[in-house]
Simulated assay, not measured.
Amino acid sequence: MKAAISTLLGSAVLALTATPVQAEEATFNNPSLVPEVAMKAVKAAVKACREQETQVTAAVVDEGGNTQALMRDRYAGPHTVDTAISKAWTAVSFRTDTLELRDITEPGKSGYGIQNLPNVTILGGGKQIMVNGRIAAGIGVSGAPSGGIDDQCATAGIDAIQEELL
């Protein structure tokens, strides 16, 4: 009987000491922006586009694609809200900035069908926000006369928070 209890206690101690390791192996941590940093990024993106005399909407989504921050400039078109969110979502979902996706989704290219998937927007202005090589969020800008300008403004949004991402 003593041997059985001793074996049982030994097994219980082993199980308790192994549990944290198993829990760590069964989960992972993803970087994520706090709301204030996400808002700082969208404000900087909108400001950068204003300086180019264009009105846009900027959105930040978390690494799961959920909208975290949004700012629509006064005269940005109503379509720019959904488009900015979709650009950010697309960059996070495909782990590629939307300007790069544009090049691989042209007719005859390997990614051609991607643009037909729900919520995907293959126009410049969607970028990943990286922290230590991992996606923390995405930013999308919509409303400038070209995807290239949207992309520049999204970059300005990321640049504004870069020091806080270290």
Results as ranks from 00 to 15, higher is better:
Ala44Leu: 03
Thr67Lys: 13
Leu14Phe: 15
Asp62Lys: 02
Gly140Ala: 09
Gln162Leu: 13
Cys49Val: 03
Thr67Trp: 00
Thr57Lys: 08
Gln128Met: 15
Glu51Gly: 01
Tyr112Leu: 00
Gln68Trp: 01
Val34Leu: 11
Val61Arg: 02
Lys127Ile: 07
Gly126Ala: 11
Leu9Tyr: 07
Gln22Arg: 13
Ser11Ile: 12
Gln162Pro: 00
Pro78Asp: 11
Gly124Thr: 02
Ala38Trp: 02
Cys153Phe: 06
Ala38Leu: 06
Ile114Met: 15
Gly10Thr: 08
Thr17Gly: 07
Gly126Asp: 09
Gly147Ala: 06
Lys40Phe: 00
Ile149Cys: 04
Leu14Met: 14
Asn132Ala: 14
Val60Leu: 09
Gln115Pro: 01
Arg134Tyr: 00
Thr57Phe: 10
Ala4Tyr: 10
Val120Thr: 13
Ala88Phe: 02
Pro118Ser: 08
Lys87Met: 03
Met130Asp: 01
Tyr112Phe: 15
Gly157Met: 04
Met39Cys: 00
Arg102Leu: 11
Phe94Asn: 03
Ala48Met: 06
Ala144Ser: 14
Gly111Asn: 10
Val141Lys: 03
Gln55Ser: 15
Asp103Gln: 12
Gly10Gln: 03
Lys40Asn: 02
Thr54Val: 15
Ala156Pro: 10
Ser32Tyr: 00
Gly124Val: 04
Leu9Cys: 13
Val61Leu: 07
Leu101His: 07
Met130Tyr: 00
Cys153Met: 06
Ser146Val: 06
Met130Val: 09
Ala41Thr: 02
Thr121Ala: 14
Ala3Val: 11
Ala69Cys: 09
Met1His: 13
Gly126Glu: 07
Cys49Gly: 09
Pro20Ala: 08
Ala48Trp: 03
Ala15Pro: 02
Gly147Tyr: 03
Gly126Pro: 12
Lys87Gly: 05
Glu36Lys: 12
Gly125Ser: 09
Gln55Asp: 13
Ala137Arg: 01
Ala84Val: 02
Asn116Thr: 13
Gln22Glu: 07
Ile158Asn: 05
Ala4Gly: 01
Arg95Lys: 15
Leu33His: 04
Gly64Cys: 01
Thr96Arg: 11
Pro145Gln: 09
Thr67Ile: 15
Leu165Val: 04
Gln128Arg: 13
Ile129Thr: 08
Ala12Asn: 01
Pro145Asn: 10
Ala18Pro: 05
Leu101Arg: 06
Lys87Leu: 05
Leu165Tyr: 03
Thr90Asp: 08
Ala76Asn: 02
Leu33Met: 07
Asp97Val: 01
Val131Tyr: 00
Glu163Gly: 02
Arg102Lys: 13
Ala3Leu: 14
Gly124Tyr: 02
Glu24Arg: 14
Gly10Val: 05
Arg72Asn: 07
Glu24Gln: 14
His79Gly: 11
Ala15Phe: 15
